[in-house]
Design a protein around this nucleic acid. Structure first.
Lengths: 212, 212
DNA sequence: TTATTTTCAGGGGAAACCCTTAAAAATCCT
DNA sequence: AGGATTTTTAAGGGTTTCCCCTGAAAATAA
């Protein structure tokens, strides 16, 4: 039995590169390649591979949402995130969504094979350097980006209130502070969580169990 | 071993009523009563009962959020929702949060005892009439309120886009429709989900697995 | 052909979001 | 105890987005 894999990447070159790297490997078969998130979603409907190598910097949908979506539909699918992005916080978010591996794009053939076998055996695959980074994470050194989110007591209260559909003004009355202060907090929370608006804020908050 | 229960209700009369109904029952002990959500949260920190009879129409926090919160902190706690509210959709949302029973307030002593025993044995307790309603639910008869949410194809797309932190304008471009149309959809979605704003929308959407 | 869905508009008010600046207040450090 | 840091507070002032109401015409579906 061959291992069926599909690849999604918006750069044709990357697509080609990986494909040629893998195509002369007898135990691997690249069944499909996609260039957008939407293509991938549609494609997997018809043909779901064993493993999907997924670039997570796609134009249409972000990698976190996409992998979440795909995994929900295809519970047996293994996803290996593929990216140049070495941001640890991002890795964490991906893993939290249930992604099975995380590869940087400057990877050689051997490592890809290794990764494929690892995830197929049900284990998590992380590259050495990413592993190191994850381990060397003293809670200090992630400050404002991504996971490992440290909200202050007050920010936590404001976040909670926002999640309860209160308006800025209502929150200010509830906490006995000025609306302007609430705005400041809201905006700081968004910065810390990396959200574009309240909706993103609440999404990330829920994902990361920030709501009591 | 007595069964320790606490009661939360903002109407003193109800509090009194239930308490007197239960106090001359040897196997039950009412350890605390609370009148607000906040009191309850604080109170359970010190003294967590076996079962909490919880009115879900409290002034400060809504029942769904509150029970979710309490259950997260006190995983062994059983909660029986207490309400006049016969809305099936609401019942469903409560159950989804992990509430163990749902009692209407016009309940007699026997039924309360029955409910307490049932939830303590780990089962779900629902009153006969609510059970009936749940069963007789043809997918038709819930239209605009609460659970059993039926979003149209387009609404689903708009919801998804909103959850991806896109603005109305961005969504309109993505879906090739007018911003005004997007607004209409947004507003219809909020109506269907019973949300006050986009934040509530996304919260409910996530709770109910409406996002792909 | 009714019902539902999708489309769109005008117009207005509220709320959110952004940027900057900054002063108390609480907390931490040695 | 005294300075350093973080947190909390707040304002001014502007832009954008959201939310609400009404009304209505196509396009689809039942």
């Amino acid at each position: 039995m061959k291992i069926n894999i599909s690849i999604t990447d918006d750069h044709k070159m990357v697509l080609q590169g990986i494909q040629s790297m893998l195509n002369n490997t007898p135990e691997i078969k690249v069944v499909e390649t996609y260039e957008t998130a939407q293509e991938t979603i549609n494609g997997l409907e018809k043909q779901c591979p064993d493993v999907l190598l997924l670039d997570i910097n796609l134009p249409d949908i972000n990698g976190i949402d996409l992998s979440k979506q795909l995994l929900k539909k295809h519970s047996d699918l293994k996803i290996i995130a593929l990216t140049n992005f070495e941001d640890i916080s991002f890795v964490k978010r991906m893993l939290k969504q249930g992604v099975h591996g995380y590869l940087l794009k400057n990877t050689d053939k051997l490592e890809i094979l290794e990764a494929l076998k690892t995830v197929l055996s049900g284990e998590l695959y992380l590259q050495k350097d990413i592993q190191k980074k994850l381990i060397n994470q003293t809670p200090k050194q992630t400050f404002n980006n991504g996971l490992n989110i440290k909200l202050t007591r007050r920010e936590q209260e404001v976040l909670q209130a926002i999640s309860e559909e209160l308006t800025t003004h209502e929150i200010s009355e509830k906490l006995f502070i000025s609306p302007k202060t609430v705005e400041t907090h809201r905006s700081n929370i968004m910065l810390k969580l990396g959200a574009k608006n309240s909706v993103g804020m609440i999404k990330i908050a829920i994902e990361n169990d920030l709501l009591t």
